[in-house]
Design a protein around this nucleic acid. Sequence first.
DNA 1: CACCTAATTGATTTTGAATTTCAATATCAA
DNA 2: TTGATATTGAAATTCAAAATCAATTAGGTG
Lengths: 148, 148
Amino acid sequence: MDKELDIFIDFLRERNLKLTSQREDILKVFLKIDKHLSVEELYDIVKKKNPRIGQATVFRTLKLLREAGFAGEVNLGDRCIRYEYKYGHKHHDHLICIECGRCIEVVDPKIEELQQILCKREGFSPQKHKMEIFGLCKACRKGSRKAK
Amino acid sequence: MDKELDIFIDFLRERNLKLTSQREDILKVFLKIDKHLSVEELYDIVKKKNPRIGQATVFRTLKLLREAGFAGEVNLGDRCIRYEYKYGHKHHDHLICIECGRCIEVVDPKIEELQQILCKREGFSPQKHKMEIFGLCKACRKGSRKAK
DNA sequence: CACCTAATTGATTTTGAATTTCAATATCAA
DNA sequence: TTGATATTGAAATTCAAAATCAATTAGGTG
Ligand SMILES: [Mn+2]
Ligand SMILES: [Mn+2]
Ligand SMILES: [Zn+2]
Ligand SMILES: [Zn+2]
C-alpha cells in the first residue's frame, strides 16, 4: 500500500503534479475496496472518509489513476464507466450475470494466445483487449429453474 | 430485404405494434448502411430520406430493431452506444484501431469454442459475448513508423 | 368505406453521467 | 517564507439517452 503510494508520488512528480490529501485519500480507498466501481460509487465511499471532497476531484483523480496504470476501465453492461484496480493484478476477463449482476473474473491462457495469433494474422498490433461474456451464473441458473 | 420487412411486420403484430412509414424507412436505411452506427448518425442519414422524421422515433425504432434481433449493440471505445446489423450476419468480434478508428470484423472458431468450455468450467450459462481488441491497424502501424 | 380505439409521432423537456469553469486555496521548490 | 503553479469544489455545462404529451395515424371491426 505504501509501495503504491510511492509509485503514485513518482508518477505525479514526473508530470509536475502535486500530491494532495484528497488524491491520497482517493487512492487509498480505491486500492482497499478493490471492486468494479463507478465514479459516483467511489465518490460515495470517499465522502465517508472525507466529507469535504468534491466529486470533480474523484473524477479527476480516477483519471490520473488510470494514466498511472492503477485503474482500468470496465464495461459491465450497465450504462456507466466502471474502474477496477489493475496494478499488480493479473489481466482477466469477465463473466457477467444478467440476472444478479455478479461478475466472475476469469483468465484462459489459451484464449489469450489465440488472440495474439488472430491479431498477427490481420497485421494488427494489439495493445489491450476486453472480453465479456453475459449470461446466467450458477446460482441464478438454479433460481430460474425453480421459478418455472 | 423484403424478407426482413416481413419478419419485422410479424414481430410488430405479435406485440400489437403498428407498421408505420417511419419504421419502414428506418429499417431499410439501417439494413442498407450496414455499419456501426450511433443513434445520431443513423438519424442524420434517415433525415435525408425523410426530413420530417424525429430523432426520438429513430431512437425508439432502433430499440425495437434490437428487440426484434436485427440490431446488436457495439461498444467501440468512443463514448456512445453503436448498433450493427445482426440478422443473418454471423457473430463476430472486433479489432479496433485506436489511431484511425477503423474496425476489423473477425471470428476465431477456436476462441469461441474455448469460451464455451471456460463457461462450463465456471457453471456459467453464456448467452452472448463481446470481444474487442484495441491497438494499431496495419496502415497506422506503418504510418507511425514513418512519423518517428 | 367509416368508425373507433389504441399505438405512434416528434417537438420539447428531462435526466444523469461525464466534463469544464473559475475564484479561492494548497503545494512545494527555491 | 515566498511565489509561481497546480489543485480544489461548487456550480455550470455538455451531450447522449430517455420521457412527456397533445396531435396524428394505423388497422381491426362492422
Ligand atoms: Mn475485473
Ligand atoms: Mn461488427
Ligand atoms: Zn447471477
Ligand atoms: Zn488505424
